[in-house]
Simulated assay, not measured.
Amino acid sequence: MKKTKLGEFEELVLLTVLALQSDAYGVAIKRELEERLQETLSVGSVQSALKRMEEKGFLTSEWGEAEKVRGGKRKRIYQATPYAGQVLHEMKDIRAGLWSTIVKTQNI
Rank of each mutant, 00 (worst) to 15 (best):
Y25I: 00
L20E: 00
A24L: 08
G44E: 09
E32P: 00
T101F: 10
E8M: 09
K51Q: 13
T40G: 02
T101A: 13
T105I: 04
A66V: 06
K92V: 07
G26I: 07
Q21F: 02
N107G: 15
S61W: 08
E62C: 04
S42P: 01
Q79L: 04
V46L: 04
S100H: 11
Q38P: 00
T60K: 10
K92W: 07
A96S: 11
G26R: 05
Q79E: 15
S61M: 06
F58D: 04
L88E: 04
R95S: 12
L33G: 07
S48A: 15
Y25E: 13
G7R: 08
R76E: 12
E54Y: 08
T16S: 15
T40K: 13
T105F: 09
M91N: 08
Y25A: 05
Q47H: 09
A19Q: 11
T60I: 13
D23I: 00
E67N: 08
E67H: 09
K5W: 12
S100Y: 08
Q106N: 09
K73T: 02
S45W: 03
P82Y: 05
E10K: 04
L15P: 00
K3A: 13
L41R: 04
R31Q: 15
D93F: 07
I94T: 10
D93H: 11
S48F: 12
G26S: 15
E65C: 00
T16I: 03
F58V: 00
R76N: 07
A24I: 03
F9W: 05
T4E: 13
E39R: 15
V103A: 15
G71Y: 03
P82K: 09
L41T: 03
L88M: 12
R95H: 08
R70Y: 10
L50E: 01
F58P: 01
Q86D: 10
S100K: 14
T101D: 13
T81V: 07
Q38K: 14
M1H: 15
Q47D: 06
R76F: 06
K68Q: 11
E67G: 00
E10G: 15
V17P: 06
E62S: 13
E32D: 12
E10F: 01
S48V: 11
L88D: 03
L98H: 09
G26N: 10
I102N: 05
R31I: 02
A24V: 02
M1N: 09
A96R: 14
G57K: 00
M91Q: 12
I108H: 05
T105A: 14
H89I: 05
S45T: 11
R31W: 02
E8R: 13
G71V: 05
R52D: 07
K104P: 03
E39W: 00
D23K: 12
V17D: 08
Q21M: 06
A24Y: 01
Q47E: 11
R36L: 07
K51Y: 11
V103H: 10
K5P: 00
M53Q: 05
Q21Y: 03
V17N: 04
V17A: 04
K68I: 10
Q38E: 14
Q86T: 07
G64Y: 02
A96L: 12
M53G: 07
G44L: 03
Q38S: 14
T105Q: 15
E90Y: 11
K68P: 04
